[in-house]
Design a protein around this nucleic acid. Structure first.
Lengths: 148, 148
DNA sequence: AAAACTTAGTAGGCTTGCTTATTATTGACC
DNA sequence: GGTCAATAATAAGCAAGCCTACTAAGTTTT
């Protein structure tokens, strides 16, 4: 076996998303939307750009997702009182109500994925993935050099 | 930090794909397309369904990708002599020619991602991810029970 | 041989994600 | 105060991924 890192990661990520979406479809939600709810629950009133940064997606991606979630009555856009360009995001009651259903589903899928993986192995996995995430999140590809 | 496995995996996978695509765009190719080339290089003449199975995507996803790659002159569909429903897939010369450029790029992105990750840690990562992949690939969610 | 089932691929329609380009503000500088 | 640059969000357009539904061709059953 000489799998590539990107291929393997992509496959595993996709399989997890597929599992989640299959189960969550009856609730009428997708995994990325669940992630938005998850973030908004503890960051009430953030701006779209801040949401995008937390999710590490482009602002337009977050904006379109908010469009759909607003149509579905899951989130609410309120005008920012100090900046007329910006929106402040809030969960609706309906949005908050889903947490109770989605949290257990999320745990269930994780458990399925991690069956037979020891606690130590899990901890190691998270640590390594976090390291990789930081490697990829940073500035372009150029090596470090002081600010100017 | 109490990140979710799916979230973290999804983010890391997306960041890797984004890096690859940014660099490969000048060549006019995407990472999923590179994966198709990679598979076809050593599985000449497979059918679309077989390709889909290897990539673990749905047949329609593979079919649409082949549409685009055929338009781009990267792959060729040839009729299956024994089954008029099926296509056999082949790389064009142009498709084969890209391997030399994409292989190093692929390695480069992996190296960037794995900077500061020891060999042992990498081996562990691959092993754990493969375990997870198998957990997720299996039959539905139901427990095993004999064929009937 | 005819009917019924299975298999290979495609069509339509949706979400997520990106890039590039635009609009509307805000903030900084002269 | 007026211009100019930076920032928040959106628009258009594309790829990849999915689901459901369909067609056409093989295969099996009767």
């Amino acid at each position: 076996m000489e799998r590539r890192l990107g291929t393997l990661l992509g496959q595993v990520a996709r399989l997890m998303r597929r599992r989640f979406d299959q189960r969550a479809r009856e609730i009428g939600i997708t995994r990325p939307q669940w992630q938005v709810i998850y973030v908004l629950r503890r960051h009430e009133g953030i701006k779209q750009g801040e949401l995008a940064e937390i999710l590490e997606v482009e602002p337009i991606t977050a904006g379109r997702m908010i469009d759909r979630m607003q149509d579905a009555g899951l989130v609410e856009r309120r005008a920012d009182p100090t900046d007329r360009r910006a929106w402040r995001l809030f969960l609706t009651e309906r949005g908050q109500g889903l947490v109770g259903q989605l949290e257990p589903l999320s745990v269930e899928i994780s458990d399925l994925a991690l069956a037979g993986v020891s606690d130590a192995e899990q901890a190691q996995l998270f640590e390594t993935l976090e390291k990789i995430r930081l490697n990829l999140s940073g500035k372009p590809i150029a090596p470090a050099h002081d600010e100017d």
